[in-house]
């Protein structure tokens, strides 16, 4: 169990570093895909299977497809991979390092209990979602509908005459 945790943690950290270091946008997107998939594996190790499956379906299946289509649409020079240039690399990296050090220095003390494996997490998640979080669940559905309509209206093709 611990070996799997370290494996997925290291894999996702390396893939997240790849998002920063790759110069081609397509490789950065695929590196983010690897990071999200290994995070899903990590969630399974942490006994959050519901979130892991949601992560795979929505993040790896939905958002990454949208981003890949965006890369395909906005790459103007056909046949040439889209490169990304950086601005203020030293200042940005130093600021990120500063944030990382501040977070490490101010981390709370966490003791993690491991719950027993016999618990049916799916059943519990469904029951919580339908009782205590019913309002948030419905509101999220309305938000998704608004977001869908807004995105379609924003990106619709209008021929300027």
């Amino acid at each position: 169990m611990s070996i799997a945790l370290y494996f997925f943690a290291g894999l996702s950290a390396a893939a997240a570093l790849g998002v920063l270091l790759f110069r081609q946008v397509l490789y950065a997107a695929l590196s983010l895909l690897a990071c999200l998939l290994s995070l899903a594996g990590l969630y399974i190790v942490m006994q959050a299977e519901y979130i892991a499956v949601t992560q795979i379906i929505i993040y790896a299946g939905g958002i990454l497809v949208i981003i890949l289509f965006g890369i395909m649409i906005t790459s103007r020079l056909a046949g040439k991979p889209m490169q990304v240039s950086t601005q203020y690399p030293v200042i940005g990296s130093l600021l990120a390092l500063l944030i990382f050090c501040a977070l490490v220095l101010s981390q709370p003390a966490v003791t993690s209990h491991t719950s027993d494996f016999s618990t049916n997490h799916w059943q519990r998640a469904g029951r919580w979602l339908m009782t205590e979080y019913a309002l948030a669940f419905e509101t999220t559905g309305v938000l998704l509908l608004i977001c869908l309509i807004g995105a379609a209206v924003t990106a619709i093709y209008q021929r300027e005459s």
Binding site: S12, V19, G92
Partner: peptide
């Protein structure tokens, strides 16, 4: 602590990507 450090690292790398990259998709 490993998971905490991993989330710190992801956050710092995300902030660094947002600050330094020029392309809006990245």
């Amino acid at each position: 602590p490993v998971l905490l450090y991993l989330s710190f690292l992801l956050f710092a790398l995300g902030v660094s990507v947002v600050l330094t990259k020029r392309n809006a998709i990245v």
